[in-house]
Amino acid sequence: MIDFDPDRTVWAQVYDLLRERIENGTYKERLPIPSIVHLEQELGVARQTVRKVVAKLASQGYVNAIAGKGTFVRPREDWNAGAE
């Protein structure tokens, strides 16, 4: 579980944390990130929050979800490909 900043939304804090883990190499390129259930339990947040964050990361090119296999970190050159 992480300590949350009461002045920021939980969603934004989880997004920043997972993006940081991808960018700093904690989650390695081409390898899977932890499952939604694992992240929900680790961070102490709702599953839907984690799903929304992962969907946003996917839309920005950070990760790619493959049905039945997991969510994988995309190569660095793909990051922000879909950024708004």
Rank of each mutant, 00 (worst) to 15 (best):
R74E: 11
V54I: 15
V45A: 02
A81R: 15
R8C: 08
D7I: 04
P6T: 12
I22W: 01
D16N: 12
S59I: 09
K28D: 13
D3W: 10
V14I: 15
R51V: 12
V50A: 03
T71N: 02
E29T: 11
W79P: 01
F4W: 12
E40D: 09
S59R: 14
R76E: 12
K69Y: 07
V37W: 07
A58S: 14
E42T: 14
A46Q: 12
Q41T: 12
E20G: 08
D3I: 15
G70V: 06
V37N: 09
G82P: 03
H38N: 08
A83W: 04
V54H: 00
D7E: 13
S35M: 08
F4C: 04
V50K: 01
P6N: 11
V63D: 00
Q13N: 09
Q60D: 06
N24K: 13
R74Q: 14
I36F: 02
V37T: 15
I36G: 01
R47Y: 09
Y62A: 02
D16V: 05
R51T: 12
R74Y: 02
E42M: 10
P34H: 05
G25V: 13
A65T: 09
G25Q: 09
P6Y: 13
R19S: 04
E40N: 07
E84V: 15
I2A: 07
L31P: 01
E77W: 11
R47N: 13
H38K: 15
V63Q: 01
Q13L: 05
Q60K: 06
A83M: 07
G61E: 06
D5T: 08
V54F: 00
A46I: 06
L43I: 11
E23W: 07
K52T: 11
S59N: 14
A81L: 15
Q48F: 04
R8E: 15
D3H: 13
G68N: 10
H38C: 07
N24T: 15
V53H: 00
Q48S: 14
F4E: 02
L17V: 09
E23Q: 15
K56P: 00
Y62E: 02
I36P: 00
Q48H: 08
Q60S: 05
L57A: 02
Y62S: 03
A81G: 13
P32V: 11
Q60Y: 02
